[in-house]
Design a protein around this nucleic acid. Structure first.
Lengths: 347, 347
DNA sequence: CTGTTAGCGCCTTCAG
DNA sequence: CTGAAGGCGCTAACAG
């Protein structure tokens, strides 16, 4: 007879069971500032407990006119760079009682626009867009338009990347970091560099290349154009780029891959082709990915506080101070010299 | 005068602008099966577009009585094991037009219960719980109770771990995998093993240890109890456990760490203490984490199709066939022998 | 301090 | 095929 209920108890049920009005029940259960007589409060709590009552967050959101959802959009959650950022976002979100809904674009920028639109449908309170911007003008415009719509209905936005759009941004100083790295490597005695530069259309990759080049030029050892190889921002991209370098028989003593994942791919490629590391060629990366710290030789890189990037972005969207123009939080990386680039004797 | 609107257009606005009734507007915009005359449909679509209308998903969910949210709960999203599973969950979720909300327990099992309760508040359609179950009886009971409440209101649940609770589960055959690994290593000539066994209360860790022990026993080279070291399921846990092993001056020729992350930590510890790898000691792990494939020497391990685990879990919760008892999908790992455990000469 | 009531935005019978 | 109206579960004025 009594079929298993597939609906949960509602506030009306609780109120009825407790013998109070809907309003009173709501007041005790939804943390309203208004006081309720102790005995009533108790019976409401008890009734709620007995009925396994849990407020319907959707209904609350509708009645209140706002949600506690923050959307996170990343390029690829399986990439340690993004999973670390996600960890930071989730940590800060939890501290602020927010729910995180996540989506992964699989490195297809158009997806950002789609997901953003979906988040608008969710009436998400805020969205964090992590990952490099691209250079494609059309895409940037479509994203901008969608961001404006999102903001038009009161949503907050933070980017983790480059300050290229009219929204709050956590800026990772890729250029300065790469410049410092170049200087440090030059000081260690390296002179003939190659750069595995990643995709041409990713601003992050471009900035790192540009910064590295600047550093070398200042140090008086300018980068040869032929020693810049583009490719995917992945392990395999690094592997292929390094092979290309070898095929070109470039005369070099140090390879800078614009991220750690690529650097590791490059190391493997070099070794596979009989290059001894780090004696014949030094290798450096960027990011200081935790799981990659234990490769041999230990990878020289630029440490990026990834979790902090994520947490900072959430803090930014939660700080409601409506500035007249986009705010920017700059985060610097720190050069970490390890065994993959030992000091090199002159000559 | 005209302050920037902070509310979005509603269906009423669209209907009004299109000169039709609310019902008609709803029918064209929400993919209702009912037909609407072509000219009306067009003007509704146009009005919606002009007003930047996007249906309020919360309101839709309330009216329909169900959501498109699937919750994912992991131990630690920054751990590549979980980020890969997450990638699989998100892929399958997207294919099914579902939204993923994610939370990370930071390896504190009580959090699973809390998050599950929050997801019940969200009226999530389903939840995927990834990560090893624990042995603590009280925790298991509290989780079970919360799972039942979740299911009582129609929510679907899938676990990725061990079939210990009365819900659908994607089971990773840790025991069988570890057993095969033991056999394979024995065949390569290893005889004196140590196991870095992870936390005592994690079922995954226990199963891997048990399987490995079984394999060795069958092969006639039983594991010495003193050669089992427990510790954290992390890189540093592996490092410490290996140091402990060294301090005990155990006579061994092969170390099995119950996951790759620990194995890498162990490799570093062994090297730091002057042990030559893999000549003096072989090292093996479990999981085949992608970013860890390039350590030197290349790590022998048991490959686990992590993304598929995640995707399978989503498929399971979406397949509404209400079986009378929990369904189980078994997934096997595959031994991958690499350079960290080269064939060993007898003697 | 408590109760009544009007929405929040949308879907979906039910008439027309 | 279209429109009117009730209701999803909850919050927040507004009275009492």
């Amino acid at each position: 007879m009594s079929q298993r209920a597939v609906v949960s108890a509602t506030l009306v049920d609780v109120a009825k069971a407790a013998g109070v009005s809907l309003a009173t029940a709501s007041r005790v259960l939804s943390g309203s500032p208004r006081k309720v007589r102790e005995d009533l409060r108790e019976s409401v709590v008890r009734a709620a407990h007995e009925l396994n009552y849990t407020a319907n967050a959707q209904a609350q959101a509708m009645a209140r006119g706002r949600t506690d959802v923050v959307g996170l959009i990343v390029h690829d959650i399986a990439d340690p760079y993004f999973s670390s950022i996600a960890a930071g976002v989730m940590r800060s979100a939890e501290e602020n009682q927010l729910i995180v809904t996540m989506s992964s674009t699989m490195r297809r920028p158009e997806r950002e626009v789609q997901y953003l639109s979906a988040l608008r449908g969710q009436r998400a309170r805020a969205v964090v867009l992590a990952g490099s911007r691209v250079t494609d003008r059309g895409l940037v415009e479509r994203l901008s338009a969608e961001l404006e719509k999102f903001q038009a209905i009161g949503g907050r936005v933070a980017l983790i990347s480059q300050p290229r759009l009219q929204v709050d941004t956590v800026v990772l100083e890729n250029r300065a970091g790469a410049r410092s790295l170049a200087t440090a490597l030059h000081e260690r005695g390296y002179r003939r560099f190659a750069v595995l530069a990643g995709p041409r259309n990713l601003v992050t990759a471009r900035d790192r290349l540009a910064g590295f080049r600047e550093g070398l030029t200042r140090a008086g050892a300018p980068l040869a154009p032929a020693h810049v190889i583009h490719g995917d921002f992945t392990r395999d991209g690094g592997y292929s780029a390094a092979e290309e370098l070898l095929a070109a028989r470039a005369e070099i003593d140090c390879v800078f891959a614009v991220n750690d994942v690529m650097a590791v791919g490059a190391m493997v490629a070099l070794r596979d082709h009989g290059v001894r590391l780090p004696t014949e060629v030094g290798v450096a990366g960027f990011d200081d990915i935790a799981t990659l710290r234990d490769v041999t030789p230990a990878l020289t890189t630029v440490r990026v506080p990834l979790e902090r990037l994520g947490a900072t972005a959430v803090d930014l969207v939660l700080d409601e101070q409506q500035a007249d123009r986009p705010r920017v939080r700059r985060v610097r990386g720190e050069v970490v010299l390890r065994d993959s680039t030992p000091p090199r004797r002159a000559g």
